[in-house]
Amino acid sequence: MERPHTVLQVSLHHPTKDPAIFATVPSRLQHDISPLLVGRGPEAHLQLQLPRLSRQHLSLEPYREMGSAGLAFSLKTLSRRGCVWVNGLTLRFLEQVRLSTVNRVTFSGVQMVIRIEGGPSLEDFVCCFHVSPSPLIYRLQAEETDEWEDIPPGAACPGFRAEGSRSPGLSPWPFLDWGQPSPGGGTKI
């Protein structure tokens, strides 16, 4: 008997509401246990048609926590120029966090909410995508997030946090600071 998959319910929104952005997004995607790539390039499993998006912008990697039976996920930024905001943390190139059950993610103007519904299958997992006409994350500021070339290390990610701070507590959306992910480095996951 086939074992039920872990399902990622992924809602997507972009403020321009341009249907071309999500034109190639399937409603359902079954993926093996390799990292799922999100970006603009042809190698991305989830392709979004945004010119400022990197070809590989971020990845969602399934793994198993020590002592746990089901799949967990970590999100890693693969964009050298852009940053990704995840549950109040701003991630730059190669930084990663463990995802919680419900996760608010923004990058290049895209708002993404990921809800993880656990299942026992360790063979693959399923993503169900839903494009939302209305914002998923409120009080989002208009500035873009992927202009990093001239920003010195340690400076703020535009529009997402207080100047010079990477503290999740200083997120402009304090109501979203519940369920903080643990930073990807340093701990056994």
Partner: peptide, 15 residues
Amino acid sequence: LFKKFDGSVLSFEIK
């Protein structure tokens, strides 16, 4: 490879 949060050096993880 990954970069530790707020760190500068790269680290490896093995799966």
